[in-house]
Design a protein around this nucleic acid. Structure first.
Lengths: 192, 192
DNA sequence: TTTATTCTATCTACTAGTAGGTAGGTAATT
DNA sequence: AATTACCTACCTACTAGTAGATAGAATAAA
């Protein structure tokens, strides 16, 4: 058994920031929120992240890692594209159950007032997901497992558009069924 | 010919607010922005709208009217549901061309930090649109013009989810094609 | 091994700027 | 005279951020 690890303040700050981004928005949380949640002073946060921009950039990078971990886990877990999609959608459903939505969706909605460096990282997340989904869709259609028409990448983008939109609406209407219904339609439209 | 109409400061404030909401977000514009754009002082805005919450509520109500006007115009213009949908989607495409997105989508993304009264008005807008689309879809399928499967209202919600998501992503990627591709898929998936 | 120095990570105290908002004043209109 | 619609001047609260201090840990030197 290892000795007690030293507290990871930096990591806790990032984790808290991601939660705040998933529940609120970039402009709706402040260093003061984090300091109260973690019981440290604002200047301690500034020590680890000298500006809010840097904090957000690092947070989005961490989010990218979480997405990367999810996608790798899907590929290690199964080769069945339907199961992969199911688990992929489930990742977002679990966010909803915690009253969060996708950090990417939040930042996308605020993009016109975001520091550019944050936008750049956000775009990377989406492109990673688009690539993954487009590849999955293409292979599945080539194998005759799926029957959708049109360009796989456009379909991938449209799936993520639907997911982001459905997450936001589902949260506003306080109705998870709204999200799961949308997922059913997305899946059904892939079958034809 | 009428005499010069008196300046409609209240209306100009509302119009400017809607533009700011469509380009930024609730938390990313301030009375100061409006005062600079219109060349009036903040307190003059406060005179017409004593609080930001009231300003937002009135703005969303005005947006509801714009949507209502759009939907009525569609119904007066044609009975062809494909043309109606095309024109409906075009309304949002024109927003993109002005570097705006749907006010409803913006507010939905910020809902966790909005005054409740603003949320209530936003929900009304969406329900209006869901009702309209669900009705259009149901009639069109009953008439054999459309071939989608599943509940028309769920399909309507999913269409709006896709539109909101695609608007946000299209704006972020600075690529209108992203939006128009999504629209193509939405329409195509209604044909089966 | 002990001591000195450097590094890390937190703190207190403070800043400039901006947000939403208020109170009182004034000119024009009714 | 009352109302409307604008103004100046100001307020509190909060934001992101800064400077300096300090304690503990790690490293280097004797």
């Amino acid at each position: 058994m290892d000795a007690p690890t030293k507290p990871d303040t930096r990591g806790e700050i990032l984790k808290t920031t991601l939660q705040l981004l998933g529940r609120r928005s970039y402009h709706s949380f402040s260093y003061n929120d984090i300091s109260q949640i973690l019981g440290i002073k604002k200047s301690s946060i500034h020590y680890h992240f000298p500006s809010k921009e840097i904090l957000a950039v690092e947070s989005v990078k961490k989010y990218y890692e979480k997405i990367e971990y999810l996608l790798n886990k899907l590929d290690n877990f199964t080769t069945d594209p339907w199961v992969k999609l199911d688990e992929f959608f489930n990742f977002f459903k679990i966010l909803l159950e915690r009253n969060e939505v996708c950090v990417g969706g939040i930042l996308t909605a605020e993009v016109s007032t975001l520091p550019n460096s944050v936008t750049v990282e956000t775009i990377k997340v989406f492109n990673r997901v688009f690539d993954y989904l487009a590849n999955l869709l293409k292979i599945s259609r080539d194998n005759g497992i799926m029957g959708f028409s049109g360009d796989p990448r456009s379909r991938a983008v449209m799936i993520m558009s639907s997911i982001e939109g459905a997450l936001l609406l589902s949260r506003m209407f306080n109705n998870i069924q709204l999200f799961t219904d949308a997922i059913q339609i997305i899946i059904r439209d892939l079958c034809i």
